[in-house]
């Protein structure tokens, strides 16, 4: 069942646990701001997971130094690029979530999503 590499891949394991924490925050928290924090934890965990993929022990960051262009000198650049793209996505999504939250707060003066649904039902729109 359990494979051989759980403790060698401790970085990935930590990322997974963080992902779970963020995921459960997103599901369980009632407060919208806390949900958004959970979302950010989740995204960051995925980036940690990705960054772990690129690492090769004892090699340098992928910026050509002193003209050395040997594949054995640098770590894998692809995951770094993917993380960069991912970060922009998570910034955008966070901004949208925050602005949605602000609109709801201005209207209903609460951050509790269930409370907001109940008030909506009361408004009977």
């Amino acid at each position: 069942m359990l494979g051989p590499n759980l403790f060698t891949n401790y970085g990935e394991a930590v990322a997974i646990i963080l992902f779970g924490i963020g995921f459960s925050n997103l599901l369980l928290q009632k407060n919208l701001i806390k949900k958004i924090i959970g979302l950010n934890i989740m995204d960051t965990a995925v980036y940690l997971y990705l960054a772990e993929k690129g690492y090769i022990a004892g090699r340098a960051a992928p910026i050509v130094t002193n003209g050395v262009q040997d594949a054995a000198a640098y770590i894998n650049p692809v995951p770094s690029g993917l993380v960069l793209t991912g970060i922009v996505v998570s910034v955008s999504v966070t901004a949208i979530m925050l602005s949605l939250t602000m609109r709801l707060y201005r209207r209903y003066h609460t951050l509790d999503l269930d409370e907001i649904s109940l008030r909506l039902k009361k408004e009977g729109l």
Binding site: N5, N9, E12, Y55
Partner: peptide, 10 residues
């Protein structure tokens, strides 16, 4: 994760 390739290997 426990089945993934080992961390940091070339």
């Amino acid at each position: 994760v426990s089945w993934l390739p080992r961390y940091g290997q070339a």
